[in-house]
Design a protein around this nucleic acid. Sequence first.
DNA 1: CGTGTTTGACCCGCGC
DNA 2: GCGCGGGTCAAACACG
Length: 181
Amino acid sequence: MDDFHMLLPSSSSRVSASPNFTLNMVANLQTQFHSHNVNGMKAADHNQIQHSDHPKSVYDKGNSYNSDENDHAKPDKKGGKKETNKKRRYAFQTRSQVDILDDGYRWRKYGQKIVKNSKFPRSYYKCTHKGCNVKKQIQRNSRNEEIVVTTYEGMHTHPTDKFTDSFDHIFAQMQTHTTAL
DNA sequence: CGTGTTTGACCCGCGC
DNA sequence: GCGCGGGTCAAACACG
């Protein structure tokens, strides 16, 4: 799997206190991870951190999720309008009371499904910005109702219409936290 | 009236 | 091939 999971430090994941800040962090994390080159992290526990085996980063290409990097592009047949290519996804586990977290972007919900090993439904969101095909899934962990798993797919090609936080000190805190896990 | 949500149907990959 | 599970579509609906 190309996902990695991360348990945010509880001090910064009190999204009830500052929801904008926490998810802005998530929004910036992809580029931050690329620039910091934290490919050496090993998944000590599958509940905590997982990351791709492919060290090369394809998520800095900027545009909508390309998939021809190391996945052969499926020839699009006329029946399927959506490409079913494998894309990089980034899952974050946050401790929150609410599912809907404002990360500064505008999301339109386009689906909700009951997944098999969870008693909570999974919600599917798309970024409403024109030409931005970023999606995210929000699912609450059934074993821990406090844990909300947010899975991002793709990268935003546009800035947030809201304020941009300074992210580095939180990221540094998060790095130490995750490498310690 | 524009924008976002709800929700059942549809699609598709995968395992049997 | 078929059924299941998961992802998406889209029409209806809600709300400012």
